[in-house]
């Protein structure tokens, strides 16, 4: 498989968010990911597509699953992968980030995967660096590969998005996963509902073109896919919701509430889960309804597809010209 001979899937050399992607780009990525699912299930998982390329994982926020998923994706495609975990320094954020960018540029990577606690950080790096940048989560803005892997998981189960009702439940206000999924699902023709206490909804959430519910029981009626969001620990104890037990009572997904969704409804969670806070173990661990493990598998394939698509844009001998 020669990268440069393939047709371009992405129009830009970065993947910074879902909002700027066309339907064709998204479908192209999903189709490509399907081929990597097959590769990952084979005994010989290695490809030489990115041989000689350097991938840097730059994580300003702790992450196990996303970082290892990108690392595995890079390695299976034959790239040299470097993981950099940067301790956060709140004093001179902007300056530090630009300093880091200059340092990284000098190392001449081909692809930079970045997670940062500030919205817009990935875009800033993309402007300053000569390599391709993949946003692995920036503040409360976007987490495009999560939305893509969620879409891949749904498409492989349901075939199409037309007419599907997807409920995104929980801390929408702070969630980059929610924002990326809202954009992506809407582009693919699904109907999106947001279910959350009002304190965890952006005040203009309906401007996303979604339906808003503060009563989970009403919001789940007729839903095909229930996407749970993680509630950060520091947001559980009074500032946004009064307590974890109250949150679980009204917004935690348990058997009783799931029964209000469409029969056969499927459950997703980007992980890591807070059992007994946003999701009950009997739901999370039920392989009949829970897609949570499948999401992890799709994550590696989806990220291989993203790296592949970006590599097609890389000129022979590196981007730097």
């Amino acid at each position: 498989m020669s990268a440069s001979a393939e047709t371009a899937i992405l129009k830009t050399s970065h993947l910074l968010g879902i909002e700027g992607l066309s339907i064709e780009e998204i479908v192209g990525l999903l189709d490509l990911a399907d081929t990597y699912v097959a590769l990952n299930r084979a005994a010989e998982k290695k490809s030489a597509l990115l041989k000689g390329r350097t991938l840097i994982n730059l994580f300003f926020e702790a992450s196990t699953r996303t970082q290892s998923s990108f690392e595995l994706a890079g390695k299976r495609l034959g790239a040299d992968v470097l993981n950099m975990s940067v301790r956060t320094s709140s004093v001179t954020k902007g300056e530090t980030l630009l300093d880091t960018a200059a340092t990284l540029n000098a190392m001449r990577p081909d692809i930079l995967v970045v997670r940062h606690y500030d919205s817009g950080a990935a875009e800033l790096l993309a402007r300053k660096l000569d390599c391709s940048v993949v946003n692995a989560g920036d503040g409360s803005h976007e987490h495009p590969t999560q939305a893509l892997l969620d879409a891949l998981t749904i498409r492989r189960r349901r075939g199409s998005f037309e007419g599907l009702i997807v409920a995104i439940c929980g801390d929408v206000l702070h969630s980059r996963v929610a924002r990326s999924n809202i954009h992506l699902l809407a582009k693919l023709g699904a109907r999106v509902r947001l279910i959350a206490p009002k304190t965890l909804l952006p005040s203009d959430a309906e401007r996303f073109g979604v339906e808003i519910f503060t009563d989970m029981r009403k919001g789940l009626a007729g839903v095909d896919i229930v996407m749970m969001l993680r509630l950060q620990l520091e947001r559980m104890t009074g500032a946004f919701v009064p307590s974890t037990r109250e949150y679980f009572r009204f917004y935690g997904l348990d058997r009783e509430k799931l029964a209000l969704a469409k029969p056969g409804a499927l459950v997703m969670h980007p992980g890591p889960m807070n059992r007994g806070v946003e999701i009950d173990s009997t739901v999370a661990d039920d392989i009949e309804v829970s897609l949570i493990q499948e999401q992890v598998e799709m994550g590696v394939a989806m990220r291989m597809a993203v790296l592949d698509a970006l590599a097609r844009g890389l000129a022979r001998g590196g981007r730097n010209t």
């Binding site: 104890t237 009074g238 500032a239 009064p242 307590s243 037990r245 109250e246 009572r249 009204f250």
Partner: peptide
């Protein structure tokens, strides 16, 4: 608010 301290809301639903 909890303890009437004006800092964190109570469990309004419960």
């Amino acid at each position: 608010t909890q303890r009437l301290a004006g800092e964190t809301m109570t469990e309004i639903g419960l």
